[in-house]
Structures are given as C-alpha cells and as structure tokens.
Amino acid sequence: MATIRNAREDETGTLRDIGLRAWEKAMINVGEMVGIRDNARAAFDTFTRQAWLTITVIEQGGVIAGWAAREGLDELISDFWIDPPFQHRGLGSTLLSAIEADIIRQGFDTARIETHARNEEAVSFFEKHGYRINWLSAAYSPKLDREVQSVGLSKVLVEESAETYGPSV
C-alpha cells in the first residue's frame, strides 16, 4: 500500500537521488547528457534542500518511491519524479491524484506542469490523466546551462458551473 505524506528535511539527499535517477531515465531520448549530469545533480540538491517544505512524497513499503513539488504553492506542479524501479506500478497516478486534490483544496481550478518536449513517457503519462498540451517552447535553462525544449500541459480540475436564472431543467 502506498502512503502520501509531506517530505522531511532529513530526506533531501534521498529526494535528490530519486529526482536525478528519474531525470536520467527521462533524458535518454534527449541524449548529450555528458557534462550536464553534474549540473542536474547540483540543481536537484539545491532544490530539495531549499524547497523541501513544498515536496510531497509517496512511499511504498516504507521506502520513498517518488515525489512531487509545487514550488510556488500554486497550480504549477514544478517537479514530478518517480524512482525508475517503482515506475509503472500506479504510484505516479496515486501521487498525481493527491497533488491535484491539494491544488483544488487551495482554491485553484486548473493544474499545470511543464516537461522536456522529448520526454515522451511523461507527456504520455500526463495526457493519459487528462492533461492537454498548451504550448511548446525552447528556452535557456540556467539550472542545466543549455537550451531546453519544453511543453506546458494543463488540466481543468474544477468545471465552472453555468450560471442560470430560474429552476434547472
């Protein structure tokens, strides 16, 4: 059984390593990882140490299997990582549902996420869960010290009810 909970400060090293392993798997389709792995590791290290309060983890059997973050505590899921040995077990779906519930509880009606454009597995995962691609761009990433192609996806979590006059039929 999976458990969802807030991250703890003493777990930042574990979270960094999970993020890096999941990132490396995702980057296989992109290639050219030589030289940027160290930058990515440093970025994960800095992020998890500074933003651990915004991180939600999923555990299975008492082991952290993945994590997600909402760095700005808004509708943007800034990070979403499942450790490769735990992928394809439904844990990502469980974690995503918990994050979406948090977004709704905090008053937002839409969830957003960004990922590398060539991360076909992630794009497919989010599309399977109702997300739609809104944009495609290429921009310089200071974290990785290179230009990165990205896609933005979003999902409406709360449908607006139509305002009508009189009794509904």
Rank of each mutant, 00 (worst) to 15 (best):
I36S: 01
E71W: 14
I4M: 03
I58L: 05
A98M: 05
W52R: 07
N119K: 08
L53W: 15
A42P: 00
A138C: 10
S124T: 14
I36P: 00
F125C: 07
A162M: 13
G66P: 01
L53K: 15
R41Y: 12
G92N: 03
I133H: 07
R89N: 09
M33P: 03
A98N: 01
K143S: 14
G166M: 08
M33K: 10
A42H: 12
V57W: 04
G72I: 07
G90T: 05
I103F: 12
I18N: 00
G152W: 10
V156E: 07
A122M: 04
L96H: 03
Y131F: 15
A162P: 06
H88L: 14
T56G: 00
V34M: 09
I4D: 00
L73C: 04
K128V: 10
I55T: 02
A40P: 00
R112A: 06
V169E: 07
W135I: 07
D83P: 03
V151D: 03
I58T: 09
R49P: 01
V158G: 01
I99W: 09
V30C: 01
E159L: 14
A122T: 09
V158H: 01
I99S: 03
T46K: 12
D83M: 09
L96D: 02
F44W: 15
Q149S: 13
F108K: 04
K128M: 13
L144E: 06
I133P: 02
N6D: 09
N119A: 05
P84W: 10
L95M: 08
H116Y: 14
D83R: 05
R132T: 14
R89W: 11
L157N: 05
V57Q: 03
E32Y: 11
G13Y: 10
V158I: 11
G19A: 06
P84T: 11
H116A: 10
E159C: 09
G107W: 10
I64D: 01
Q50R: 15
Q87N: 07
E163F: 15
A43S: 11
L96F: 08
I113C: 05
R16F: 01
S141V: 07
I36W: 09
E100R: 08
E32K: 12
A7H: 03
G61E: 09
A43E: 02
A111T: 10
G92S: 04
S150I: 08
T46Q: 11
V57E: 02
Q60C: 06
S150D: 01
E11L: 03
Y131P: 04
R112S: 09
P85K: 10
E163Y: 14
I18W: 02
R118S: 06
S150N: 11
E32D: 12
V151A: 02
T115L: 04
F125Q: 00
S141G: 06
I58F: 07
A101L: 12
E147H: 14
A7T: 02
W81S: 08
G90N: 01
G13D: 12
S137G: 13
R112V: 13
R21Y: 04
K128N: 08
K143M: 13
A65I: 05
R132G: 09
E24N: 05
